[in-house]
Simulated scan of single mutants.
Amino acid sequence: MDIPYSSMGTIEDYEATWKPKRIQFRDHVRCVASLFKRYFEKFKTSDSWKVLIECVDEITEPGVRVYSGVCTVQVQFHVDTFFSMNDLEKKETTLDLMRKGIYTIISEEGWNEAPFEKAFEQVMAVKLVNEWFWKKPLLSSDRKYKASLYIVHEVTVVKAYLIILNKNNREVLRLEAFKERPNEWNYARYLGKLVWLSQNEVVLFNKNNETVRKATVSYEE
């Protein structure tokens, strides 16, 4: 989702007035958009690999446009109202805008609506909460502990927690691994690999093999 710059202003005007707003909007819709994407099953079309919903004050290009595999549609929305909403309202509005845009495309392109509706239903089933475990739990060499990374994707921030369970599946340690802008392309750099350095010490490495967070469990736990 995006809010295209429609003014005939200067580059300086865009940088000063529109770019910060655009970045914030794109970040704040990712909570719901990425949740939908995670539930959405593979879907093939003849000419598109991506859907882009443009939120505009007035629709200037009705209908669906496909360019370089990007299927674009405009949805009328006064974006300034978005920034005065609370987080739940932003989530609900994001989902509503996605529905309007996607179903316009489905209608015009003749796509099967079933996989889209299924994803929408799953998003609603979890009440718009975007929290998930990254990869499967990693066992320590003595099989006493399991380590995992838990991602909490809110509207305004993403936090990740390094969680360790004992062999009875009781949580014995939880540490904040990182905190970042609410955009998966921004925090993906932290998601390299989890490694047990010893029987009670685990570390999260980023994609450059640098330490993000280390956790040590006392054997008493």
Rank of each mutant, 00 (worst) to 15 (best):
E220M: 11
S141P: 00
V172Q: 10
V29M: 04
G110I: 01
Y187A: 06
T81H: 12
L95R: 07
I151P: 08
V129N: 10
V195H: 12
Q76N: 02
S34G: 02
L95N: 09
A125L: 07
K91V: 05
Y161N: 14
A119K: 03
L138F: 05
I164N: 05
Y219I: 12
V152F: 10
F178P: 04
F116M: 03
M98H: 06
S84Y: 06
Y5R: 15
S148D: 05
F116G: 02
K19T: 00
E58C: 07
E221W: 11
N206E: 03
N186C: 08
M85F: 13
P4Y: 01
L138Q: 08
F133N: 10
F82Q: 09
E176Y: 02
K167T: 09
A125C: 01
R189Y: 13
V203F: 00
N112C: 09
Q199V: 07
S141D: 12
R30F: 00
E58W: 02
Y150F: 15
W18G: 04
V202D: 04
V123W: 04
S46R: 10
G101V: 05
K179N: 13
R65N: 13
V32A: 01
K100Q: 15
Y187M: 08
V155E: 07
F40G: 01
K21G: 02
D80S: 12
Q199M: 05
F25Q: 05
V66N: 05
K50H: 14
L149Q: 06
P62S: 00
F178L: 08
G63T: 02
T81D: 14
V212C: 07
K19M: 10
T72A: 10
Y187F: 15
A114M: 09
L35H: 06
S107W: 10
A160L: 12
L149A: 06
Q76R: 15
K214D: 04
L204W: 03
N169Q: 12
W49P: 00
Q76D: 03
W196G: 05
H28C: 11
W111L: 13
Q76H: 02
K167D: 14
F205W: 01
K37H: 11
E117Y: 03
K19E: 12
K21C: 02
V73P: 08
Y5P: 04
I164C: 13
